[in-house]
């Protein structure tokens, strides 16, 4: 995740590192738990060096950061960017093709193993989604992951069907 995320969060109001951390946790829910505080502070100091944020007088709770005009401009730019992660299915697809052509492994077994793994993941994310209170930001993020996984599972189903057909031919 890019550092612009931290920059954009500062657009609301000047804030301390720990406050930013809390807001990130709120938006990410269980998925934010893996993030450590160090990542935030490293990012902040890097942004400061780039002149995108400045440090205000230190408050009781620690250093308070604020956007510079250049920082605000960068945020606006970031918001208007259209980018989307590429679906990364090609690798798995090639794994199946290669396994079948070299007769190294049964693609269907590979699909099956993968499916189990995805189901396990789905189960975990699903659990997490159910645990979120209604209307939470984190719930929405989890829902997105659930739908992604469902899409992946359906694609695996299609793979299984197709490779089964090919084997019979």
């Amino acid at each position: 995740m890019q550092q612009e995320v931290v920059l954009a969060l500062l657009a609301k109001e000047p804030s301390t590192g720990s406050r930013l951390r809390a807001r990130l946790n709120e938006a990410l829910g269980p998925l934010g738990e893996a993030m450590n505080d160090g990542q935030i502070y490293v990012n902040l100091s890097r942004l400061e060096r780039a002149g995108l944020i400045v440090r205000q007088a230190s408050g009781a709770l620690g250093k308070v950061y604020e956007l510079t005009p250049a920082g605000a401009e960068r945020v606006a730019e970031w918001l208007s960017e259209v980018s989307w992660p590429k679906p990364d299915l090609a690798e798995f697809h090639l794994k199946l093709v290669a396994a079948a052509q070299a007769r190294l492994a049964d693609p269907i077994t590979i699909v099956d193993t993968q499916r189990r793994e995805l189901l396990r993941r789905l189960r975990e994310v699903g659990r997490a989604a159910m645990a979120e209170p209604e209307g939470s930001h984190a719930g929405l993020l989890l829902e997105g992951i659930v739908l992604r996984l469902q899409a992946d599972l359906r694609w695996l189903e299609a793979c299984e069907g197709a490779w089964t057909d090919r084997r019979h031919r």
Partner: peptide
């Protein structure tokens, strides 16, 4: 044709699988 016992799901691996990290 197939049976899968689904175990886990105690959110143990949620962070490592889907956890969000910042570029450092």
């Amino acid at each position: 044709v197939d049976e899968t016992r689904l175990v886990g799901g105690s959110r143990g691996q949620l962070g490592s699988l889907f956890g969000v990290e910042l570029e450092v």
